[in-house]
């Protein structure tokens, strides 16, 4: 089952986001070993070189580190993961606010609608 990837933007970036999501959702817990590049590539339905690029990208963010012979592991540092979750959540909130404002709502109206929605 290939991942839902869009050909319009760089795939390696989309993969990076996808894996970040997986980490936040708990599919990959801290200290877990990631599948090999090839296995991930087959799962995602992409070229292994593209997957390689994505994983290198992740390494740069500190979320993933590689042990020379054993493969790639999710970071043990819980803080980094928490930060990731926070930043993803904030991004969603930001996008939400932008979209709501496009519909012509101001901040007070937005907050009111949100608590009404949550109350249901």
């Amino acid at each position: 089952m290939p991942w839902n990837l869009n050909s319009d933007s760089p795939i390696f970036l989309q993969i990076t986001d996808y894996i970040k999501n997986d980490i936040v959702l708990g599919r990959y817990k801290s200290g877990d070993k990631l599948p090999s590049v090839r296995d991930l590539a087959v799962e995602a339905g992409v070229n292994p070189n593209t997957m390689q690029r994505a994983l290198s990208n992740l390494e740069q963010t500190g979320l993933v580190h590689s042990e020379r012979t054993s493969g790639r592991f999710i970071t043990e540092d819980e803080n980094i993961i928490k930060e990731l979750k926070t930043s993803l959540v904030n991004k969603q909130i930001e996008e939400f606010f932008i979209n709501m404002k496009k519909l012509g709502l101001n901040e007070e109206e937005i907050l009111q609608l949100v608590s009404d929605f949550a109350g249901k």
Binding site: D8, P10, I11, F12, T50
Partner: peptide
């Protein structure tokens, strides 16, 4: 991927 990045298209 560089093409996608540079031109924003598939």
């Amino acid at each position: 991927d560089d093409i996608r990045d540079e031109y924003g298209k598939s």
